[in-house]
Write a protein that binds this DNA or RNA. Sequence first.
DNA 1: CCAGCTTAGTGTTACTTTTACACTTAATAA
DNA 2: TTATTAAGTGTAAAAGTAACACTAAGCTGG
Lengths: 254, 254
Amino acid sequence: MSSSIEQKVHAGVLNDYFSVDCVIFGFDFSQLNVLLVDRVMTDELTGKELFNDLTLTGNHIYDDEDLDAAASRVLFDLTGLQNIYLEQFKTFGAPDRINRENDRAWLAANGRDPDKRIVTVGYYSLLATDKVTLEWKGRNVRWTPVAEVTDLAFDHMAILQEALVALRKNLLREPIGFELLPEKFTLSQLQRLYEVILGVALDKRNFRKKVARMKYLVPLEEKQMGVAHKPARLYVFDRDLYEKNRKELLDFAI
Amino acid sequence: MSSSIEQKVHAGVLNDYFSVDCVIFGFDFSQLNVLLVDRVMTDELTGKELFNDLTLTGNHIYDDEDLDAAASRVLFDLTGLQNIYLEQFKTFGAPDRINRENDRAWLAANGRDPDKRIVTVGYYSLLATDKVTLEWKGRNVRWTPVAEVTDLAFDHMAILQEALVALRKNLLREPIGFELLPEKFTLSQLQRLYEVILGVALDKRNFRKKVARMKYLVPLEEKQMGVAHKPARLYVFDRDLYEKNRKELLDFAI
DNA sequence: CCAGCTTAGTGTTACTTTTACACTTAATAA
DNA sequence: TTATTAAGTGTAAAAGTAACACTAAGCTGG
């Protein structure tokens, strides 16, 4: 990931062939959301709204810019967030991936050749919605529950779906969820996280037995305060312990 | 994957910005190999050999060509193979990924601008070495044991390593190995496959117990013939049974 | 202050999977 | 007929999975 200065000031030339699209998932304990950008096009003469739809947060990359850095920059431009890990999950390059009328009109209106192919590298990230300030440079960006997204511009619906598959696969293998929780969290919060992202219900007792085997989930002598029910014990994720005890997953399905 | 005609005849223009690199793994029951191309450069005047190294099988893609189709075409051009499944695993786009002297000289000698960045989409495939004929259009392509590859042109060493990680991850989740075996195979062959690709030793009895649980591995009333030891029972992989009984992997590591 | 609300927290049993480990069997070759 | 080679087999202990229902602790409102 590039430094903040590189992210903010970029001297290169935007490259017409490459873009990155970032699928920014936002977790909020009740559902999984995705960051979408309003795309409104109005007729220049009449002022009439031609269409108003949604896209993922993507953009072209600079000619001398690393792919990962470009993804970070785009995320920064849209949200002001920095030092967020973005995972590259797939590259989309069908020659006809931009073929709908709205998309072609949009590109033309923005000074791009709608017939020029664009290969886009997909990244995803997973954030806690409440850590993101969406009042940023007046961009028209907002969280939408993933379950409610039915259509997006370009091939972004397909990109979103692939990102969700990649996110879930990754969550099943790596403890990527702790970034989303407060430093001290309860087991119910952790369980909720898995349920929301994986879209399943988990048994509380079995979940806790599993947690008990993970030595890097350290119980504290500290409880929630100010909740209107029995306060839960707080836990922390010990990254060092995790790294040391991480064993190769060699459990294979033939 | 495109049809064979599309693979052979392509009318478009090669795009200078994009390439695909195919990491073709070859399994031969004794080791895991990778298909590499000799890259020899000689001084035009003196005829002296300037360098002689190895690259992955990659090439630029056509402007109107799908990424997956481009990977298939490159594989076809180099090996004559068709209808081989190629899995996209990662895209490499560091602006300085081509910076070594040999690589720059090579590009210049081949009429390309060494300062122009090239983003390459990585694909891998897994074949049985004995199914591949390397006498194809006189290309200088050959199998090299993965364990013996120490250096490659461009950033191909890094691409190879990432491909191997992706291959192993995939083999642990999906039964991708059966393409490499004869239609009827023995359990020892299957075990050997896993050992060679994953680079581990597996216990014979435990392996067989695991196989016994996989209902889509169907034992036949048929044995090996002509071997100088106790003949092994033959098995087939029943893809239909696999597809029907495939269950969601929801076994997560918190 | 106590009754009610809400979420935290806990244990057992049956079953399945994993791990570690060594000898017998069946074919060909010499 | 014997040697060589790889195939094939069982068990016990430990760990993990799955299903399942009640009590505990704090706050709230009357």
